[in-house]
Design a protein around this nucleic acid. Sequence first.
DNA 1: CGTCTATTTGAATGTACTCAAAAGCGGTGG
DNA 2: CCACCGCTTTTGAGTACATTCAAATAGACG
Lengths: 199, 199
Amino acid sequence: MSNPSIFSSIDAYIARCIMLSEADYAYFHSQLSVKNYKKKSRLLSAGEVCTFEGFINKGCCRVYYLNANGNEVDLYFGIEEWWVSDLASFSQQKPSNLFIETLEDTELIFISYEAKERLFKKIPSFDRMFRLMVQRTHETLMKRLLSTYSEPAEERYLAFVNRYPAIVQRVPQHLIAAYLGITPEFLSKIRSKLKSKNK
Amino acid sequence: MSNPSIFSSIDAYIARCIMLSEADYAYFHSQLSVKNYKKKSRLLSAGEVCTFEGFINKGCCRVYYLNANGNEVDLYFGIEEWWVSDLASFSQQKPSNLFIETLEDTELIFISYEAKERLFKKIPSFDRMFRLMVQRTHETLMKRLLSTYSEPAEERYLAFVNRYPAIVQRVPQHLIAAYLGITPEFLSKIRSKLKSKNK
DNA sequence: CGTCTATTTGAATGTACTCAAAAGCGGTGG
DNA sequence: CCACCGCTTTTGAGTACATTCAAATAGACG
């Protein structure tokens, strides 16, 4: 390893789920690769098979979908300590429907499909780690789905701001609209309404 | 086992994901329990900790959420070979936000939290099985979220009918409306519009 | 058969969208 | 350092999708 601390963030992430020996960590690191991207780099396009799960060491990405009307819908934004991937495409090695791109200069730690399989074979507790990870994502998605069906856009926006204040600072507003499933114009109107309320 | 074939459906389900020995299956079965419920039985209420994952051997259930306005939103309907649970509540042993109830007389195969942990310990490939299971659910949820943001209610209804024809037959229409995130009145209007179209 | 619940229909309303145009903001080059 | 360009955000008018409320009809079950 050129820089002994480059994996410190991902190691800390792992350590919250499972216990690994020094040797396990060394093997884990041997299966990873690190890469830097400029702002607005495309990491995945719909139609490609997603070849990686990427841990954001530094930077910001968005994962989005292009619907039949040509509108982008943002699935989520990732900052430090988030993973970006299309799990469906990656795990089944089939073409993706999603796009992933960087919103800032970004340093990613990659794990490939083959490396992940090797990891599962050599260190079975990674099965558990990734299961817990997917479970958490699942819970988040479910809550989002429920709030979409239960709350008007204004409340969903407030909940988003409240839950992801760091992301609101870093992501342009029209992308947040695309995440909330509303038009940028409408989000702007919501914001101006909220502003006049709080005065 | 009183009835040697009672687990045949769940065994077939498992076999699609992982390979198990006869002994493994025997142990697996020893960790399960089977229970029959009448129509409209409540299996879980919001506020309770979800103590089980339930595999539907026979019957039909719904998993739903009660929002702040007192409206029910259906997360999904389960028929034979589906699992019903609140994974977030179950896996973290914290109070649920969901309700689960039967829509027909239903036979469920239960696995408790402790039994599942024992299973993971004794047969680690179950970690993999449940990871794959959550991954599939994750993919389904994601598609649903995207379609909610991309398609009007009419198309979502058609997609639902197309994807789950068996469920449409068995679940009352106002619950399908609650799944689609629309009012029963509006679903009725969509249907009558579709009917006049296809004549 | 009667009761209870589910579905349909209609009118009025509201939330969010489309389209168009103006204003703001950030970066880049002269 | 300012001017300009492109992109983001705001604002407004008209429209569409979906809701609410109310009432009528149809179905299911004891």
